[in-house]
Amino acid sequence: MKKSVLLGTLAAVGVLAGAASAGTLDDVKANGVLKCGVSTGLAGFASPDANGRWEGFDVAVCRAVAAAVLGDGDAVQFVPLSTKVRFTALNSGEIDMLSRVTTWTFSRDVDLGLTFAGVNYYDGQGFMVRKDLGVGSATELDGATVCITTGTTTELNLADYFRANGMSYEPVPIETNAEAQLQYLSGACDVFTTDASALAATRATFASPDEHMVLPEIISKEPLGPVVREGDEPWSDIVRWTLNALITAEEKGVTQANVAELAASAGGDPEINRLLGTEGDLGAMLGLEADWAANAIAAVGNYGEVFEVNVGESTAIGLSRGLNALWTQGGLIYTPPFR
């Protein structure tokens, strides 16, 4: 049977190669499942539990989009992707969207043919040191040995930062985060540097987290967000506004618990009404059902709930909202109005 599939495929190549692809939205609707690229495993952001169900902050974005488009937050096929293949997988059409702690940079946006559909997490590169090192600030790290993961923006940021501050350092290049934890704990390096969220997650796994501290300096901007292929505006609109819907829901106090009640009939707040489809026709403009946003919120909760459940202070990772608080609470999370 498999052989016939293969042969049939090869025969079909010649016939279909010229045919243009329909929009991603039509493809997703036709398949009845959203193919979403995620990390192969990153604490708090994406990982399968013992039953194989994917959980995490990035995973929630996939589920929200699936719920908005297909009405079912579980209609997602998660495609675990390594750093190396993530963009090719997206560009080749193997996945419909990528939600994999991907930093929005100029060259990725402009040169690689990608469209970033927003920012779901504002991260930045930080440093972790042992407390007994007696260092209180990154500017005192002159001459330190530093564990860094190679091939990432982290490496370049580190070089820039030390040069700008006239300091020297000894790099200890490392392939994966798990290896970096071991090297740091075994004392192979004084400092471990990576995104601050990952530092917090790493520190939480130590036998005695209190002996280690994350320095206050954040030396780079790492806005992480979902990515789609360039040139499919209707689809990037859907991903962007699904994310915005989660944020607006937090602003307006729409939660997973009360969304069904609020979406049942038009209430007093016109923006909530427009968001949940009880007024206006925003859903139809996106090519979706009127209750698209209500479905997304019902599936994963609003932005604040997603944050709290996956990486928030109640979890082992224990990140505070910081930059990722709503703009009304001193953070950067802001969305254009639903109008």
């Binding site: 192969t40 994406a46 399968p48 994966t176 798990a178």
Partner: peptide
């Protein structure tokens, strides 16, 4: 595991990615 298939080695990363077994 490098191309994202979850063979035993690929699963290590996934298992480390859960908050229960991180580290």
């Amino acid at each position: 595991s490098i191309i994202g298939l979850l063979d035993p080695v690929g699963l290590i990363v996934s298992i480390q990615g859960t908050s229960d077994w991180n580290g």
